[in-house]
Design a protein around this nucleic acid. Structure first.
Length: 280
DNA sequence: AACCAGGGTGAGC
DNA sequence: GCTCACCATGGT
């Protein structure tokens, strides 16, 4: 992997990256927009950026040189995905899943954005989550960012229901108020997985699954193993047929995949959604 | 027209 | 501890 900078563009070469898969279809991030065949744009962490997909990597236009470390982390460029595939060797189905979707990467998003979007994701479908996140950002955020906890905590339930949040509206408001009042969202990244998980469960609208998504996609805790309906079916059929509930499925995943559990999960999840793995 | 979606909550055991 | 009805909304 090589990163270079020239004339306002960050260029990333020699890296497996499938922009359509990772930014649009993977259901880990909901606010990238497709602008053209190879062009994608996004507002994240107060940065407005355009990504141009290339043969063996990508370019970021409108990027500052001092933001290279930010994007390096955001796109998970320092993780060795082939090594993860190899580490799955005892579990051929998992290894095949990782190898069948080259270029799918697990992004490291800002924690607050991840928390917001996954509260909205509960019992919802991807198309509608994307619309909802876009509305939340454009109606209540600024041109360059999502609404802050301060701002969101002062929006009325009626206003949030008006853009389609439904019963998740009070969860958003109450969680925003807790973060505003000092809930240590950022410092949870430095706690262990279990400890951070328990703290996240204190937030309204956050259960085991949403907490794991925030930890995996927004806190860099790769052992987090979100169990949604797809992963539940996968685990029941292929990996942990005796698990009696989702908590036991998570434990089984930690046993099998350790610190790579969340990364493997993302590949399995997507293969299942694409129909590449039979769930009978 | 039913059924589903990257589920969480609270009540009743 | 556990199960389960209920929760808005729109996609398929």
């Amino acid at each position: 992997m090589r990163i270079s900078y020239q004339a306002g563009e960050v260029s990333v070469r020699d890296v497996a990256f499938d922009a359509q898969l990772t930014l649009i279809d993977s259901a880990q991030v909901f606010h990238w927009k497709k602008e053209g065949a190879e062009r994608y744009s996004c507002v994240t962490a107060g940065r407005h950026v355009t990504l141009i997909a290339e043969a063996n990597g990508f370019r970021l236009s409108n990027a500052a040189s001092e933001d290279i470390p930010f994007w390096r982390n955001y796109f998970d460029l320092d993780r060795d995905y082939q090594a993860i595939a190899r580490a799955c060797e005892p579990y051929p189905l998992a290894r095949e899943a990782v190898e069948r979707l080259p270029g799918l990467r697990v992004l490291n998003q800002p924690a607050w954005e991840t928390l917001l979007t996954f509260i909205l994701s509960a019992n919802n479908n991807v198309t509608r989550i994307r619309r909802l996140v876009e509305s939340l950002k454009s109606v209540f955020g600024t041109e360059d960012d999502f609404p802050t906890p301060e701002r969101l905590s002062q929006i009325s339930e009626e206003q949030l229901r008006a853009i389609g949040c439904g019963y998740r509206a009070p969860y958003l408001i109450q969680t925003a108020a807790m973060v505003r009042d000092g809930f240590p969202l950022e410092s949870l990244k430095d706690e262990g997985y279990e400890s951070a998980h328990k703290r996240l469960l204190e937030l309204p609208g956050v259960g085991d699954k949403v907490a794991d998504c925030v930890q995996l996609f927004g806190m860099g805790q790769s052992e987090a193993f979100p169990v949604d309906v797809w992963v539940e079916r996968l685990m029941k059929k292929w990996f942990a047929p005796d698990a009696r509930n989702k908590r036991e499925m998570r434990a089984a995943a930690h046993e099998m995949f350790g610190e790579n559990a969340g990364i493997v999960q993302q590949y399995l999840f997507h293969c299942a959604r694409l129909g590449l793995i039979s769930l009978e």
